[in-house]
Design a protein around this nucleic acid. Structure first.
Lengths: 150, 150
DNA sequence: GTAGATGCAAAACCTTTGCATTTTG
DNA sequence: CAAAATGCAAAGGTTTTGCATCTAC
């Protein structure tokens, strides 16, 4: 759905090797529209007999996580999932129906965080926000509840 | 640190039995200042040879979670943790140093969520916000970095 | 050629479940 | 006394690790 080269670039820039397994995992991620779990990728890899080990997938995700190419979120169900992300933004709205994720900018949120800091006296240095709802597409084709991604 | 009767009341109100193990777990939770993990409780129970099984602790947490007596949050590290909470509020600032958690109200956040909904076209029905930073106490006694809770 | 990356299988975790036994109301 | 709750140990599920082998640079 979107091209995987961002992931490969990130690796290259950070001095990691561009290996075949990593290209494949990047490809798998690229063809996912919304969020996905490590298990999704493992299953997809097996389905197409890519010969990539579970460990490789986890290691690649870990790498991209630390490079800021993906973000890890926690679904309300408690499962872990990942979404692709541009290094600068760090929040998403995730569609609870189709799993598609959209990035949102911090405007306004920053103000809120500052207000909380002022009210509570905490020196806030991190925050995580996850929003869940139905995306415009799923809302319009409201009839049949589309496939669940997670 | 705070009394455990809220937990027991919640059980009673919901028609669950007030058992000895549940009293003990409530006590363990009550003496924790901030967030805690299931593992924390299991360890504490074993340390004092309370004879409470792992399963009982998980089952009790599950119960309180659904009764709204605790909320489950996910630390930046990816670990699961719980915090006590008043049924009406649903966000916390967690001190990354001592683990103490303070509740915050939604004023302002609601406005932000609405703005996102408007901008993205999503019908947002859930959101999770977790804030992390250093609490006033830890900031003042800035010298030695206090114990880590998680 | 060599450091880095991989695959496999085992290990380590954390959480849940089945079931015989105990406890609460 | 019956229904609910418990403890134990075993099962489930996910993520990590050790290590011999392979591969990108």
């Amino acid at each position: 759905m979107e091209n995987p080269s961002g992931f490969l670039d990130a690796l290259e820039r950070a001095g990691y090797r561009l290996t075949e397994p990593r290209r494949l995992v990047a490809g798998l991620i690229a063809e996912r529209a919304g969020h996905f779990t490590a298990a999704d990728l493992v299953a997809a890899a097996q389905r197409r007999r890519a010969g990539i080990g579970r460990a490789t997938i986890f290691r690649a995700l870990e790498l991209w996580l630390e490079l800021g190419a993906v973000e890890r979120i926690d679904l309300p169900s408690g499962q872990h999932a990942y979404v692709r992300c541009e290094p600068a933004h760090h929040h998403h709205v995730v569609c609870s129906e189709c799993g598609r994720a959209s990035e949102i900018d911090d405007v306004g949120l920053r103000a809120f965080v500052d207000a909380v800091a002022r009210r509570t006296g905490y020196a806030i240095d991190t925050h995580r926000l996850e929003l869940f709802g139905r995306c415009p597409a799923c809302r319009s084709g409201s009839q049949r509840p589309a496939r669940r991604t997670a």
